[in-house]
Simulated scan of single mutants.
Amino acid sequence: MPPIELSVSDLAIAASLLLVNGLLSWRLALNLERALAVSAVRMVVQLVLVGLVLKQLFALGSPMLTLGVALVMVGFAGQEILARQERRLAGWWAYGLGTGAMAFAAAAVMLLALTTAVRPDPWWDPRYAIPLLGMVLGNTMSGVGLALNTLTSLASRERAAIEARLALGATRWQALGTVHRQALRTGMMPIVNAMAATGLVSLPGMMTGQILGGVDPQEAVKYQILIMFLIAGSTGLGVLAASVGGVYRLTDARHRLRLDHLKVPKN
């Protein structure tokens, strides 16, 4: 059975649900009407533009254009990580650490997937590389953002205890061990929960899209398992790299706590 094509009117029917949300927000004085409208318009515009760009990218099949799109995606994802930090690192570290950790993890996992499991021809085929990268980046971004936010927030909150351990001769890793482990756990928790719920509680978007597109459910399941493993691997690498880098930045070679490397939050 060929995939069912959706018309503008079909999308309008689905969009009417937002009116219900808007009315509920107005009736309950939640003040979310404007945010819902802006978010919906932004989503539609972004997806339409992405669809046009991907159509041209798939037609051209250029490795340089594929790399360019991938770098743009990484750049925007890094900005999202930065926006989620309550206590940011000062200077270029605020953007560079999270973006670098995420880019390293996503690149390593994508190279592994495209050259071993998926094996498109050519290996950088944008029809495979860009959608897979989008799913991996989106989840890695969340994990890295949570890990960095937890690390900087707890380091500030537990300053007295950390400095006491350092004064007693503990290394930076010993003094910040509890904070570091909590950052790792927080960053990994979303993907752990997602893997536990996938299948029985939720059917992920990629699997659902493939099934609606006519792909055999068993093949769709295989792809979804692959994606979840890739996301878990990338999230783990990204969270580890970001948290390790964060510990180094919040201390120095003499094992002193350097909270002056954090930007003072605005009231």
Rank of each mutant, 00 (worst) to 15 (best):
R87W: 13
A117D: 08
H180W: 15
A113D: 03
A161M: 13
L184M: 14
G98S: 03
R127L: 02
A161H: 14
T150I: 00
G169Q: 09
W92R: 14
M141V: 00
P120K: 11
T178D: 15
T198H: 04
R165V: 06
A70H: 01
A197Q: 09
A170I: 09
L146S: 01
M135W: 00
A161T: 14
S153A: 12
V179H: 11
G134T: 02
L82Y: 14
W124Y: 15
L151Y: 07
S153Q: 12
L114W: 09
A194K: 04
A196I: 13
H180M: 15
A129E: 03
V179L: 09
L133V: 01
M189A: 12
D125I: 03
A197R: 07
A94C: 03
G169Y: 10
L71G: 01
A170E: 10
A94W: 08
G187Q: 11
R119S: 12
M188C: 11
M141D: 04
S202W: 01
A101N: 05
A101S: 11
M73N: 06
T140A: 01
N149L: 03
G187P: 08
A197E: 06
V74H: 03
G187M: 08
T171P: 06
H180K: 14
L176K: 07
E86L: 12
A160S: 13
P120M: 07
A108I: 14
A103F: 06
Q174W: 03
R165C: 09
T152H: 05
R165S: 14
T178M: 08
M195H: 01
A105G: 08
L168T: 11
L112F: 15
W124A: 04
M73K: 02
I130M: 02
A129F: 12
P120Q: 07
V192C: 00
L89V: 07
G91T: 06
A117Y: 15
A70I: 13
A105W: 10
A113W: 08
T115P: 00
G75V: 10
P122K: 09
T198K: 05
V136P: 00
T115Q: 10
H180R: 15
L176P: 04
R159K: 15
L82H: 14
G169P: 12
T198M: 12
